[in-house]
Simulated assay, not measured.
Amino acid sequence: MTAMAGGFSGGGLTLDLPFTGAWLTQNSPARRVPSHGTDLLGERYAIDFVGVDTDRRTGGRTSWGTLAGTEPAERFYSFGRPILAPCPGVVVDRLDGEPDHEARRSPLALVPYLLGQRARLQQGIAAVAGNFVILEVVPSRVYVALVHLKQSSLLVGIGERVRAGQPLAECGNSGNSSQPHVHVQAMDSRDLSVARGIPIAFRNFSEQPTRRSAWTVREIGIPGEGAVVTPGIFPDSNH
């Protein structure tokens, strides 16, 4: 992919990571495309990030729900973390009324939840995306969506121009989300129902592919599946 730093070229879009701290990469287009197994809703090159602690854990204390049921979204490190604008742009759409539901990390709870994805899609975009912000990358007419945001946390309104790094909302567990995380995608339309995905890459981040790996600084790239990433230079990075 040939992506123009700070904007769009024929190959895709280069973004900043939309957060601070350490996050685990899931459903990365570095592993497969479509990254989420579908081209619907502009998801072809989408990527997910889940907040973690220094031991790569996504959530705090465990209970019976960890093994066989659901858990409060507040138990997970992502929940409530600030989500930042990954590029300059204009807010062209937003939704902030969907509830944050219980989280699931138990395989016993995940299976029936995954089987219900088709039904949620039939309910409409809100049931899948939850709360979201869509930015237009002016003047390219490319759009960036940040999805599964926390209810009542959005800080920006439609028509507002934002700068890269500006707080937009907080990470939540709304929509089709098994545990709190932020879903990021670029697309050719502001309308999720007809949008087609556009390739994305990220700039200036540190990446640790596995727990035992050294941290490496990447000037531009797509985080690998299962890698932990943090913006900028991690103190133990090789550079």
Rank of each mutant, 00 (worst) to 15 (best):
S140C: 04
P139Q: 04
E102N: 03
T62A: 12
N131S: 00
F79Y: 15
P88E: 12
Q117K: 13
Q123K: 15
V138F: 05
E71K: 05
P107E: 08
V147M: 12
H101P: 00
P72D: 10
R120I: 04
I83F: 09
A145E: 04
P139V: 02
G65F: 03
T70N: 02
T70L: 08
T70H: 09
F76I: 03
E136F: 03
A73P: 01
R61A: 15
Y113H: 12
L146Y: 04
A119C: 01
Y113E: 10
D100K: 01
A119V: 10
F76W: 12
L95R: 15
A68D: 02
G124A: 09
A103C: 02
S106N: 07
G60S: 14
I83P: 01
R104I: 13
F79M: 10
Y143W: 10
D100L: 00
L135I: 07
G97E: 09
A109L: 02
G60F: 07
H101G: 11
Q122S: 14
A119H: 13
N131C: 01
E102K: 09
V91T: 06
G124D: 11
E71G: 00
V147N: 09
F76L: 08
G60T: 10
L95K: 08
G130N: 07
Q122H: 14
D93P: 00
E136M: 11
P72S: 08
S78D: 11
D96C: 01
G97D: 10
G89T: 04
G97Q: 01
R81K: 15
D93F: 00
R104Y: 00
V111S: 10
Y143Q: 04
V147A: 01
S140Q: 11
A129R: 06
S140Y: 15
P82M: 11
R104S: 02
P88R: 15
L95Y: 12
R120V: 06
R141Y: 06
V142I: 10
A73Y: 01
E102W: 06
D96N: 14
P88M: 04
R94E: 10
E98M: 11
S78F: 05
P139F: 06
V133I: 14
A109W: 02
A145T: 08
S63W: 12
V91M: 03
A145Y: 03
P107R: 08
A129W: 13
E71V: 02
V142L: 08
V92L: 08
R118Y: 13
R120P: 07
S78C: 03
A126Q: 14
A109C: 06
P82W: 07
S140H: 13
T66H: 06
L110E: 12
F76D: 09
N131T: 02
F79R: 04
E74P: 00
S78A: 14
V147C: 07
R94V: 15
V144Y: 04
G60W: 08
P82F: 11
I83K: 03
V137P: 00
L67H: 11
S106E: 03
A145K: 11
V137R: 11
Q123T: 04
L115H: 12
E136G: 07
C87V: 15
A73I: 01
S106R: 05
